[in-house]
Design a protein around this nucleic acid. Structure first.
Lengths: 337, 337
DNA sequence: ATGAAAGCGCTAACAC
DNA sequence: GTGTTAGCGCTTTCAT
């Protein structure tokens, strides 16, 4: 069963294939009756336009490559959800590639997109990537590239992320306003910009409210529930005085919360806790955990919208790269009130 | 800056483009030296093969369409993660489409895939879909279709899902073994096979252990936290006696848990609760919620592997549709112990 | 071992 | 309002 082409439709109707093509594309100079007949026959013959041929000829594929570390982290899948939704509304389709946080796979993804002739790429960079030539190369080839969340200034392309500094500041300020004087910050030793920014926000908030920056209250480890637990254990073991905890992300905050509960330290009465990310579980645990929301779906939607706006103007790289910084949202729950 | 083609490489090397094409495709009858020269020149000129042209000519795109209700639910994003991982390892790329649970969008997705000439489609059907002609049509066109999780027997294609009946049985049996005699089941009125199967498992378990099937203990509503709350409210309002709750999915189970807590009914002492899906929050709430794990990433990987196996044999629809039924895993937590 | 030539299914400029 | 024609950049068969 060969697939139906415009030639098949043309033969059935005794017209030429080029008339069929124009009719299907709603060309103005084709008679209404012809269009009608062509459309009917197209349906009758189960015609489906061959986008490969159309794209090859026209130079437009209507495909955008989305390159993310993994879909198995709700942050990324939510962003991709937002991207696909907006792109789809605007007639674009998404080719998906996961880098698995591996530099070489990221390069492979970019190459695949190039070969597929995507009209642009939306990406968040892998943690292991230190060299950005594959992204800079896209810019040289004039392929629109837009980054989100894990952005890299050196690449010099438009991007969308949240204000991690502001989020860190906001979280810390919230604890201070709730009366905390000795606030612990649990961070990470991974060299990722966004986590450093949260730390910077923490420090600035302390400064602004005249509280000392006490390095013995700042911890660095690997993102995990265990990290949160261990930090609390250590603080209590060493009889360090503290009345607030700002964890750099939710799982670490959860660990802190669990350990405090195990040690019968009341939250929020004795120690107030806030984290970062607004993962699904935070609203449902006891006590519910305060956090900072990253507007993940909106980040994807905004990324798609900015991308569409810029390619429509047809001068993607001609102006200084536009950047959207989304506001983090303070989510106040039981753990900090 | 026009893109480099095999003609450009041919011109530089004073050979014909057809030799270049063969060299790049590692054709056996091309001299090693020629291949080497062609490859060098390809790199020098930043050549990237145009897959549109290649696909148009060869009839192979190397693209598989993945059609899911949404990526904003961890179940689906995990499965897609598994699918992409295995497909990528085997040289295929993923075109992504979200149906948003809307029948019309599902049809649009299938049409898009058809036009893009995907080599097959992996899909989970939208809740609002009642007519499956768009899927059956794929079969008629001999486009490989593989379904996962929300499968429909009427379509008659290979699929991967978990044993929802077994999972429902397992969950109910667990409550019975924990001493429950009057077990509520909260289900849905949506006509989805997997949910009916969980209900069937519930009933069979009751039968096996000599417990009566009491229709006043079975509820039907729309998947939501509210559904769980309302059912508990109603049971208590009407003074119905019950000591166990098996919710058909985690959010409904969470609602039940919350309402029981609000009504000061102790879990698990007075009422034991188990749900289904193993969403991330279940392990971290208080009490932690027992549930049934669906092996989401594995489901995606198995779906991809089965798909690849079947298309390799080149007789996708010639045998009775192969089916893989994964085993559900009972996750015992505080809410049912 | 390389080249010549046809054609995948469409778009788009140009004729009539 | 419809038809003719020339490709888009490849794969693939056949010839040399």
């Amino acid at each position: 069963m060969k697939k139906t082409t415009i030639h098949d439709i043309a033969r059935e109707l005794n017209i030429t294939f080029s008339t069929v093509a124009k009719a299907l594309n709603d060309h103005p100079r084709i008679a209404a009756a012809t269009k009608e007949a062509v459309r009917e026959m197209a349906i009758k013959l189960n015609y489906q336009q061959n986008k490969l041929a159309s794209s090859l000829r026209s130079g437009r594929t209507g495909i955008v490559g989305v390159l993310v570390p993994t879909l198995d982290v709700s942050f990324f899948s939510s962003v991709v959800h937002g991207i696909e939704t907006v792109m789809n509304e605007n007639g674009y389709n998404i080719l998906l590639y996961q880098s698995k946080e591996i530099y070489e796979d990221e390069i492979r993804g970019v190459d695949t997109f190039l070969q597929t002739r995507v009209e642009g790429i939306i990406s968040s960079v892998a943690l292991s990537t230190k060299n950005y030539d594959h992204f800079i190369d896209l810019k040289k080839r004039k392929i629109p590239l837009l980054m989100f969340d894990r952005t890299v200034d050196e690449i010099g392309v438009p991007y969308v992320r949240i204000d991690d500094y502001g989020g860190g500041f906001m979280a810390t300020e919230h604890l201070i306003k709730q009366g905390c004087k000795r606030i612990v910050h649990i961070s990470t030793d991974q060299q990722v910009e966004i986590f450093k920014e949260r730390l910077r926000g923490y420090k600035e908030a302390l400064l602004k409210y005249g509280l000392p920056i006490d390095e013995s209250l700042i911890f660095y480890g690997n993102l995990s529930i265990e990290l949160g637990k261990n930090c609390i254990k250590k603080l209590v073991d060493e009889k360090v005085d503290f009345d607030g905890v700002f964890a750099f992300e939710d799982y670490t905050g959860l660990g802190a919360l669990k350990e405090l509960k195990d040690l019968k330290i009341n939250v929020p009465e004795q120690v107030k806790v806030i984290a970062f990310a607004n993962e699904a579980f935070g609203a449902h645990i006891t006590p519910s955990m305060s956090t900072v929301d990253q507007q993940t779906v909106k980040m994807g939607e905004e990324a798609a919208r900015l991308f569409l706006k810029l390619i429509k103007e047809n001068k993607y790289y001609e102006n200084a790269p536009e950047q959207i910084i989304l506001d983090p949202i303070l989510i106040q729950r039981e753990s900090s009130q």
